[in-house]
Simulated scan of single mutants.
Amino acid sequence: MIVIDRVCKSKSRTPILREVSFEARPGRVTGFLGPNGAGKTSTLRVLLGLDRAASGTALVNGRPYAGWPRPLTTVGAALDGSGAHRSRSAHAHLRWVATSNGLPRTRVDEVLDLVGLTGDAGKRAGRFSLGMSRRLGLAAALLGDPPILVLDEPVNGLDPAGIRWMRDFLRASAAEGRTVLLSSHLMGELAEIADDVVVIDKGSVVARGTLAEVTGEHSTLEDAFFALTGEMERPWS
């Protein structure tokens, strides 16, 4: 379970997170939605210990992410692409990540097969398309078979078949009892897979609840989003 409680953060004295609070629960997919610059990635970075909050707490199963001795066995996270050095092959990158967390090397081949990269295991990460990089990042997140997944824009760059695969995978992960937290700007896709939705705007959570509760009287999640944030333009279909 993920609990974000009144997290505040500023940059150059400008607030970028204002008492952000929400939960992501086991067995459910929680979608984290907001305009560019709203604070989605900043919140995830605080959760994963990559940035420090000025106040508030971000806990994973009751403790900070940094408090877990083998974090990959608790939280699988994928932010900002694959995280692999351009000159390393997919297999070498995953082998290094597995070794750093005391995981068996046999797990590398298992996750490559799971995300559909077995045939590209020897290819250097710098030659990967955006969609392949997303799959490699997910493979690294899955190495420890964690009960919690935190993914930033997981379907960005995937082709239609890849999007369907990702949708099915995330739903299956939640059905197995995992906590799944993902950010996305693709509201149509989010509406297809999310059980719960958190909407953030200008660093503040403006809505949270089940998909039905957040959508409310609006016909679509997209309509609800623009009503909540006051955005005039609709850059996404």
Rank of each mutant, 00 (worst) to 15 (best):
G162I: 05
L138H: 03
D159N: 07
G162T: 04
G144Q: 04
D120S: 13
L151E: 09
E153Y: 00
P147Y: 01
L142N: 06
W165P: 11
L142Y: 06
D152C: 07
L130F: 03
L143D: 04
R134P: 00
F128Q: 09
L149D: 11
G122V: 07
F128R: 10
E153F: 00
L149W: 10
L170E: 04
D120H: 11
L151M: 10
G162C: 07
R167W: 12
L142D: 08
L117A: 12
N156A: 06
F128L: 15
D168L: 10
N156G: 03
R164G: 10
A161K: 15
G137T: 11
A125E: 01
R164P: 06
S133D: 11
G144T: 12
L117E: 12
G157M: 00
L130W: 01
G119L: 10
R124G: 04
D168Y: 13
T118D: 11
L143Q: 02
E153T: 03
L142H: 06
A141I: 09
D168I: 10
S129C: 10
V155N: 00
G122Q: 11
L158N: 02
S133V: 09
R124K: 09
G137R: 08
L138V: 08
K123F: 01
S129W: 02
A139H: 07
R124S: 08
A121V: 10
L151Y: 04
W165M: 11
L151D: 03
L117K: 13
A161T: 15
N156E: 03
M166I: 05
W165L: 12
R135V: 08
L117R: 14
S133G: 15
S133I: 08
I163Q: 13
